Computed example of a mutant assay.
Amino acid sequence: MTEETGPTKTAGRPKPARWLLHHVEFGSGTPVVLLHGHTADHRLLLPLEPVFAARRGWRRLYADLPGSGRSPRLTGPVTAEAMGEAVLRFVDKVLGTEPFAVVGISYGGQLARHLIAERGPRVLGAALIAPLVRPAGERTLPERQVLARDDALLAALDPAEREVFTSVALYQDDAGWNAFRDHVLPGFRAHHREDAAELLKSYLFREAPESRSGAHDGIHLVVTGRQDHVVGWRDQLELLDHYPHATYAVVDGAGHNVHLDQPDTVHGLLGNWLDTLAAQRD
Results as ranks from 00 to 15, higher is better:
E98T: 14
E98C: 11
E98S: 13
P99T: 02
F100R: 09
F100C: 08
A101R: 12
A101M: 10
V103W: 05
G104Q: 05
G104E: 03
I105T: 13
I105Y: 14
I105C: 14
S106Y: 10
S106V: 07
Y107M: 13
G108E: 03
G108P: 03
G109C: 15
L111Q: 14
L111W: 04
A112C: 08
R113E: 02
R113W: 00
H114T: 02
L115R: 07
A117E: 12
E118D: 03
E118S: 06
E118M: 06
E118R: 14
G120H: 00
G120Y: 00
G120E: 10
R122I: 02
R122M: 03
V123N: 12
V123W: 08
G125S: 11
G125W: 09
A126Q: 11
L128F: 01
L128Y: 07
I129K: 12
P131N: 03
V133F: 06
P135V: 08
R139E: 07
R139M: 07
T140C: 04
P142N: 01
R144E: 13
R144L: 05
Q145D: 01
V146L: 10
V146S: 07
R149F: 00
D150E: 08
D151Y: 03
L153D: 04
A156N: 08
A156H: 08
L157I: 09
L157G: 05
P159S: 10
A160C: 09
A160Q: 15
E163S: 11
S167C: 07
V168S: 03
A169Q: 02
A169E: 06
L170A: 09
L170E: 13
Y171E: 12
Y171L: 15
D174R: 15
D174M: 11
A175M: 05
A175C: 03
A175L: 09
A175G: 06
G176E: 11
N178M: 01
A179S: 12
F180E: 11
R181I: 01
H183Y: 14
L185R: 14
L185P: 09
G187C: 11
G187R: 12
F188E: 04
F188P: 00
R189H: 14
R189D: 12
R189F: 05
H191K: 02
R193C: 04
R193L: 12
E194I: 06
E194G: 00
E194L: 05
E194V: 01
A196I: 00
K201V: 01
K201A: 05
S202M: 09
S202N: 15
Y203P: 00
L204V: 00
F205D: 03
E207M: 00
E207Y: 05
E207Q: 08
E207F: 01
E207R: 12
P209F: 04
E210A: 06
S211K: 15
R212T: 15
R212S: 13
G214E: 11
A215M: 05
H216Y: 01
D217L: 05
D217H: 05
G218C: 06
G218V: 03
I219G: 13
I219P: 02
H220L: 00
H220C: 13
L221S: 06
L221P: 13
